Amino acid sequence: MLAVGAGHELYVETNGNPGGLPAVYLHGGPGSGCQVDHRRLFDPQRFYAVLFDQRGAGRSRPKGGRDANTLPHLIADMETIRRHYGFERWLVVGGSWGSTLALAYAEAHPERVSGLVLRATFLGTRAELETAFLINLPQFYPALYEDFLGVLPEPERAAPLDAYWRRILDPDPAVHAPAAKAWVETEGVLSMVTPRRNRLDRANLTNQGALPVTPYIEAHYFANDCFMRPNQLLDEAGRLAGIPGVIVQGRYDLLCPPATAHRLAALWSEAELRTIEAAGHLLYDPGIRDAVIAGINDVAARSRA
């Protein structure tokens, strides 16, 4: 547990060869936390990999904490971790929200990044969220979109994203719990090529039970434009010059579609875009995990000393 200020303590672990190439893995969400299998993306003989749960996520404390939890805080936390281990540079790997944080960190501290491997590129913009939930959702899952809107009172349906985030952040459990469950279930369907179900269980939305912290931290970030200026990551993509990279993209990713990765690759000449057919958003879709592992090894071979 590493104290980073403002009452936050981060869960941090290292894996692999202490003499190997330094690397860091950035989980998604924001708010999801690292998983055991994320360690296996890195060859333990070749890499010394750091995994950590971001503020409020996973095993970090306080769990679900949103105070002093912004993108600049997370970037500063990465620098704290890097200095703690004495790394001059490290290979930065992230998927979905992890790709957002990876890009923001690399653009803030390009001299500290030996290479980048991104999966399911997300630039943290309002437009991407509107595309996922207000265009792709009704286009591909019209009945689920009706369920998604139906959770909201009629007057709030004209601006459903703002309504969801406002409700999820409401202190009253009767308000935030159904909205958080509906958000998680809908996001889950959009993340899968073949979801097990494609409707909301309206009865389950009001059931008592533990809730993940992810929708609460996501609502906190999304309602604040991920604490970035509009189009910040593309506008500052020139700062990635000289950093080798691989972008892994599922062809049928409805949350983070290929157009986003394509726009980034057009501005970052050292990046190789690798599109995986018949795959969507998830790390465990066919071909995605293997492509990320291959990307990590390939970028390591090209990485800056």
Rank of each mutant, 00 (worst) to 15 (best):
V24K: 04
Y25H: 03
Y25D: 00
L26D: 01
L26W: 01
L26A: 02
H27Q: 12
H27F: 12
H27L: 08
G28C: 03
G29C: 10
G29N: 03
P30C: 13
P30L: 10
P30F: 04
G31P: 06
G31S: 12
G31T: 08
S32A: 15
S32E: 15
G33S: 13
G33K: 12
G33V: 12
G33F: 06
C34E: 10
C34R: 09
C34S: 14
C34F: 11
C34A: 14
C34M: 11
C34Y: 09
Q35Y: 14
Q35H: 14
Q35F: 12
V36P: 02
V36F: 10
V36H: 10
D37F: 13
D37L: 09
H38P: 02
H38G: 03
H38A: 06
H38D: 12
R39N: 00
R39W: 04
R39T: 07
R40K: 11
R40Y: 13
R40C: 04
R40L: 14
R40Q: 09
L41H: 02
L41F: 10
L41N: 08
L41E: 01
L41D: 07
L41Y: 00
L41P: 01
F42C: 03
F42H: 01
F42R: 02
D43M: 11
D43T: 08
P44H: 10
Q45S: 15
Q45L: 15
Q45F: 15
R46A: 15
R46F: 11
R46V: 15
R46Q: 14
R46I: 14
F47A: 04
F47D: 02
F47H: 01
F47Y: 08
F47C: 05
F47M: 03
F47G: 01
F47R: 06
F47I: 10
Y48G: 04
A49H: 00
A49C: 07
L51H: 04
L51T: 04
L51Q: 04
F52D: 00
F52G: 00
D53F: 05
Q54W: 05
Q54K: 05
R55F: 05
G56E: 10
G56R: 09
G56N: 10
A57I: 13
A57Q: 14
G58Y: 12
G58Q: 12
G58D: 13
R59N: 05
R59M: 01
S60N: 09
S60G: 11
R61Y: 07
R61H: 09
R61W: 08
R61C: 05
R61E: 13
P62H: 09
P62V: 13
P62Q: 10
P62Y: 07
P62M: 08
K63D: 14
K63I: 15
G64P: 00
G65A: 06
G65Y: 00
R66Q: 02
R66E: 07
D67K: 13
A68T: 04
A68D: 08
A68M: 05
A68W: 01
A68L: 06
